[in-house]
Design a protein around this nucleic acid. Structure first.
Lengths: 186, 186
DNA sequence: GTGATATGTTGGCAGAAGCAACATAATTCT
DNA sequence: AGAATTATGTTGCTTCTGCCAACATATCAC
């Protein structure tokens, strides 16, 4: 009989937890419910995750992997749109990653994943010289804030007028790109 | 004996909840703990708040009032710094307001408060003509994302090199302002 | 094979949200 | 003023959750 041991409970828990997160939100995500869906007892998860936060950190890490993929796949000028589209496609995951619930300092793997996306941005702004680090920080801040505000519904009206979130995002990012272009040619 | 009725329990609960939020974080904030600190029974809060989310929404609304004050007090060119400084001064409150825990759609008062800050921004970009709405959205996104990322520790290294979060924020915002200036003079 | 180790189970505790029933104070109506 | 109504607070309960401790069973090292 080999039903006592699950086989790959850790992965099964992450899968179940991911589904709960996406469909019912962070508040509904409990270790016990994930265990239930994986068909194990309420305490089995503790063999794989020290506590609830630890599970959340693992889910966030998955999210960073997805986000980094999304960004790497794009040409330099299009990274920002990819960032926003990722957030729109995975709203709950995005909130988990950046909603302040999980303290980054406590999970080295998370910090590393976050810095990875930033690194790519930094190189994309080299042409601005000594201003580059700040320009890159501004770029990340811009797409990050835009994603947040769209998700929270703060641009609801503008979204309708622009015909969808993606279109709106492109216009907003385009506005800044225009300014950057003017700066470069000056 | 008039200790049965509290007098202004709603305000006392908001006060207690605000202190818990700032000192121990959102996770530690329970209706019961707030009730304890206000010196009432564990169920008294339900006379003033339908549920926990309702309390959180009220706390967020307080935060928006504070934020709008902070922004209104500043000259146009300095609003962004005020926004970031508010977030740095009230990190937990900021996360509550924008962390996706409270669904804005469910609380009209919150949506109104959010749009108030946005309105001020919109007028500050009139000089850009038809691009103004997108420029304003970009400006809000920029300061919003910057505040978030600083709070989450994603700019830890850059912060040290710049000598503090406020200084860093000024440089980042200045970088965009320079680009905007180039655009205007083109 | 056998002992050590990894993985899963059962049972229990404390703390929280929220419901129901009850108690007391404040207000309103006459 | 006195009664009825309403607002506000209390006690007690149920269900859920996170997490601890003790125990059970499978897997692996030797």
């Amino acid at each position: 009989m080999s039903t006592y041991h699950h086989g790959d409970l850790r992965a099964a828990l992450l899968q179940a937890a991911g589904e709960i997160l996406e469909k019912e939100g962070l508040a509904a995500l409990s270790l016990r419910e994930a265990a239930r869906r994986a068909g194990v007892s309420h305490n089995a998860p503790y063999r794989h995750f020290a506590d609830r936060d630890s599970l959340l950190a693992a889910l966030a890490a998955e999210g960073f992997a997805l986000l980094n993929d999304e960004i790497r796949r794009r040409p330099d000028g299009d990274m920002g749109v990819g960032y926003v589209e990722f957030a729109l496609r995975h709203p709950q995951r995005f909130h988990l990653m950046f909603g302040g619930q999980v303290r980054f300092g406590d999970y080295a793997e998370l910090r590393a994943a976050g810095e990875q996306s930033y690194g790519k941005l930094l190189t994309a702004f080299d042409s601005l010289g000594s201003d580059a680090p700040f320009a890159a920080a501004a770029a990340w801040s811009l797409v990050h804030g835009l994603a947040h505000l769209i998700l929270d519904g703060h641009f609801a009206q503008a979204l309708q007028e622009s015909g969808g979130a993606a279109a709106f995002a492109k216009k907003v990012l385009g506005s800044i790109r225009a300014a950057r272009a003017a700066q470069r040619s000056a």
